[in-house]
Design a protein around this nucleic acid. Structure first.
Lengths: 188, 188
DNA sequence: GGATTCTTTTGACTTTAGTCAAATAATCAT
DNA sequence: ATGATTATTTGACTAAAGTCAAAAGAATCC
């Protein structure tokens, strides 16, 4: 299996030794997941940690009956529903495929075994958790300090072709504005 | 030293065995910290994890020269600048005492020693980290889904006498509105 | 391929929040 | 205590975002 992209992402955090790379080769599974599939349903426990080899996904949750997007992720990124995956409790959010994906993943149990067998890999694990934490803080800071159009510009810089894969409404709830407002931000 | 409140908070997460309680007795230091003191200055690394026995604090950061409040914490709560404390890197945020405090704390090194000597305490540590993560996610969700006055009502429910210790401007930046707007929210 | 459904845009209007300035209230230092 | 400083409130106005409804544009399905 071609794990080059996954190794590139992990090596950027901390270099993976050769024996750990071999171990990955033996446990990672790869699957093609079509648009509209749900990787995680609210109420279920997140069991797997995924790497997006190709494709695009979003996470969303419901509040007072209305859907809100929590985040988007594209190829080269690692996806989990952080709270559910680490706490082993039911997720409040859903993860949905927006563009046909090739995903590579391992289970929570396999990850724990990697931590036991390769203690240095705990550092990578901790750093990934920190990256997620920082991302969550940054999101709150953006909502607190940026205007709606600044947040939209930032999202576009991160995912330049997001408009081709996510709907106006999905992007609007991520930004915290109504879709009519986002349409007008785009127009100018 | 009176660690009853601290033990109550930790026991609510996971029961602390007697020998660990004794260990705490020997390493926790208690200090009185006056209003306006800075527990952490941006650019410095967060070295200690504090328990607020009494008092009130806030964390804030600067963006484009303007201060923004990240969070408030009161007695019975555990405070750290999560990112800096765990990553051992300089903090982007400041922690400021808003009301004279009695703080109990241990250092990062001591915490690591507790993890080594009492492996089960890792679970408490992980749960505290999760609580912080959830708090950060909840903050983003509130900014995304609630109106300014709903956010203010929620803050008041959490810290009913916050107006006595935090200024209008400090609360306003936490809520993501101008202080004139918060003044008008209060008026009605 | 054309009707149906869903998504996005536009328009007119309302509500909410921001801006700037001045007035009032509260706090602090001597 | 009292004058000075700082914090909060209020007013009049502007800007931004929300609401509701309808029209235009895309995508999808027999």
């Amino acid at each position: 299996m071609d794990l080059i992209n996954l190794f590139n992402t992990l090596n950027a955090i901390q270099i993976l030794p050769a024996d750990l790379q071999l171990k990955f080769q033996s446990i990672v599974i790869e699957e093609a997941v079509p648009k509209k599939a749900l990787l995680l349903k609210a109420g279920m426990v997140s069991h797997r940690i995924y790497f997006i080899k190709a494709g695009f996904v979003r996470a969303f949750y419901y509040k007072d009956g209305n859907p809100y997007t929590s985040w988007f992720m594209g190829s080269g990124e690692i996806i989990i529903s952080v709270y559910s995956f680490f706490s082993r409790k039911p997720s409040f959010e859903n993860i949905e495929v927006l563009e046909d994906c090739v995903l590579q993943s391992i289970s929570w149990d396999q990850l724990q075994q990697l931590y036991l067998a390769f203690p240095a890999f705990n550092i990578t694990g901790r750093l990934i958790t920190e990256l997620y934490y920082i991302r969550s803080e940054e999101r709150a800071i953006d909502l607190q300090t940026l205007t709606a159009s600044q947040r939209y510009a930032k999202l576009l810089a991160q995912y330049p072709n997001i408009s081709q894969v996510a709907s106006l409404g999905q992007i609007a709830t991520y930004l915290g504005v109504k879709q009519e407002t986002l349409s007008r931000i785009r127009a100018k």
